[in-house]
Design a protein around this nucleic acid. Sequence first.
DNA 1: CTAATTGATGCGTTGAAAATGCATCTATAA
DNA 2: TTATAGATGCATTTTCAACGCATCAATTAG
Lengths: 147, 147
Amino acid sequence: MRLTRYTDYAMRVLLHLAARGDDGLASIGEIAILYGISQNHLMKVVQDLGKAGFVRTVRGRGGGVALARPADQIVVGQVVRQTEEGFQLVDCAGCVIAPACTLPRALNEATAAFIAVLDKYTLEDLLDRRHQMRALFGITEKAELPA
Amino acid sequence: MRLTRYTDYAMRVLLHLAARGDDGLASIGEIAILYGISQNHLMKVVQDLGKAGFVRTVRGRGGGVALARPADQIVVGQVVRQTEEGFQLVDCAGCVIAPACTLPRALNEATAAFIAVLDKYTLEDLLDRRHQMRALFGITEKAELPA
DNA sequence: CTAATTGATGCGTTGAAAATGCATCTATAA
DNA sequence: TTATAGATGCATTTTCAACGCATCAATTAG
């Protein structure tokens, strides 16, 4: 059982934007380089996130991507639901016992439990090591000047 | 998110054997034809189930497969754990933020919740339509003779 | 108005893993 | 001794995610 990289990348983008905070827009190319992944693929992920309302995208020079809402208002489960299409874990089409089989019911219940856990977390919750993550992203902290 | 057919087939075999009950051994070839699936592939699935102790296999003429224990002692979650290798939903190798990322933790928690649901069910629980399933398998019921 | 930058989109290609086929061996019963 | 049925390793096919590429659209700098 695995999630697609598509979902993985979606979360990476969101985490990056969340850790970044209000430091303006980030470009897709920049994020792709950061993670060492395909810009083309990432483009489609971001586009999807945009249509779903998780991020806002700005075209043209100086454009880029940013969270559409505060990190504490973006629920992980919602993101996964969006990017991981179809949670039908088995394909009953053509199975002779389908009419009498209750396995799908159990699997659906299990899937619901899976998502329910992810619905407990927001991006903000995943940022408890925010400073460390910002450092990994190469985001420099503003120096705390003495008053 | 999907399960492999490998797991799907494993469950189909077990359900068949469970519905069959004590009517002797079933051959892998027979089961493969019943579901219209690859006998070669099914062979490996059954072999795996045998090594894991869910079924007992008998070689040679008149051989076949049967449940190793009563259906109410075979837990669905255990089967899935056996057949679905690796529940690591994402691949963090090479991800720059891995040291600070708590996403895997949330995913592991979600996966645990998933399996926990399947651990509530045994094969017997999935057989509440046992008669209907037996009919779909083409297993004829013994006539209930009046006393 | 033009050029440069950045996202949007459709389509073709690649690659990795699952699924399947095949050949051969082993065990058991008639 | 032969026929049947599982055991096992290796090769092949299939499938789908992942990725590349070409082109268009939007926005800004000059």
